[in-house]
Amino acid sequence: MVVEAPRFLQYKVGIIGAVGYAVYLIILPHVGTALATFIACVIISIISQQFARIFKAPVTIFYIPSFFPLVPGVAIYRTVFNFINGDTALGSYYFFEALMIAGMIALAVFIVDSSLEIKRHLDQKKHSMH
């Protein structure tokens, strides 16, 4: 496997990716691509954080393969294709779309990781006061 995940975690990683992509597909008809990506990535990030703690493994083992289906590969391809063919307007549109999707992935990870870190800090502070 590309990320060298232990064998016993491979199915769990696949489940996280499948859940995230299912959320994306369910939400996509109702919202834009960027928002659907963001919501799916928040779900992936939360589940990955929980699995990392339960199975005592680095969270990146769960993150990297689970985000693969949401990476904006098609938008990047269309960006390059349209720029090469001289359609800079359409190429710019797809470039912006790719940036938005990639940004939503990063933002979701940042928000979940930061929220958990703040919660952990507040819990430690609360325990030290007692």
Results as ranks from 00 to 15, higher is better:
16 I>Q: 00
95 F>W: 06
24 Y>F: 15
10 Q>N: 03
102 A>E: 02
26 I>R: 02
26 I>Y: 14
109 V>A: 11
24 Y>W: 11
27 I>F: 13
58 P>C: 11
124 Q>K: 14
54 I>S: 00
91 G>W: 04
47 I>L: 13
51 F>G: 01
50 Q>F: 15
116 L>C: 09
33 T>C: 07
72 P>T: 12
62 F>M: 04
12 K>H: 03
29 P>G: 07
86 G>N: 04
77 Y>M: 07
40 A>C: 09
48 S>C: 10
35 L>Y: 14
129 M>E: 13
4 E>C: 06
24 Y>C: 03
96 F>N: 08
112 V>E: 01
120 R>H: 10
129 M>C: 10
49 Q>W: 07
128 S>L: 15
58 P>M: 08
56 K>E: 11
119 K>G: 02
109 V>G: 00
70 L>C: 12
60 T>Y: 08
27 I>L: 15
99 L>W: 04
56 K>H: 11
109 V>W: 03
126 K>D: 14
69 P>F: 10
31 V>P: 07
11 Y>R: 06
130 H>Y: 15
120 R>T: 09
86 G>D: 03
67 F>Q: 00
87 D>A: 01
28 L>I: 09
116 L>M: 13
122 L>R: 12
94 Y>W: 10
122 L>C: 11
48 S>Q: 08
55 F>Y: 15
61 I>W: 03
119 K>D: 05
41 C>D: 13
38 F>K: 08
74 V>A: 14
100 M>F: 07
79 T>N: 02
78 R>Y: 10
9 L>S: 01
92 S>T: 05
21 Y>F: 12
110 F>L: 11
111 I>D: 01
87 D>T: 01
20 G>Q: 04
72 P>F: 14
11 Y>V: 09
53 R>S: 08
4 E>G: 08
58 P>Q: 09
107 L>P: 02
73 G>P: 03
100 M>L: 13
100 M>T: 05
66 S>Y: 05
81 F>T: 09
80 V>F: 08
9 L>K: 02
99 L>C: 09
89 A>Q: 03
74 V>Q: 08
94 Y>G: 03
35 L>C: 06
91 G>H: 01
69 P>N: 07
115 S>F: 14
129 M>Q: 13
124 Q>T: 11
3 V>I: 15
58 P>N: 06
37 T>W: 12
92 S>D: 02
75 A>D: 04
88 T>S: 01
81 F>N: 10
20 G>I: 08
123 D>Q: 15
95 F>A: 05
129 M>K: 15
71 V>K: 04
73 G>D: 06
47 I>E: 00
123 D>G: 07
100 M>Q: 11
43 I>R: 01
79 T>M: 10
124 Q>P: 00
105 I>N: 02
124 Q>A: 15
111 I>C: 07
20 G>M: 06
7 R>I: 14
76 I>K: 01
75 A>P: 01
72 P>G: 04
53 R>T: 11
84 I>Y: 02
104 M>N: 05
84 I>R: 06
52 A>I: 06
93 Y>H: 04
9 L>M: 04
67 F>Y: 12
99 L>G: 11
120 R>Q: 12
82 N>W: 09
116 L>W: 12
71 V>W: 09
40 A>Q: 05
2 V>M: 09
56 K>A: 06
88 T>D: 01
24 Y>T: 08
85 N>Y: 09
5 A>S: 05
2 V>T: 13
42 V>D: 03
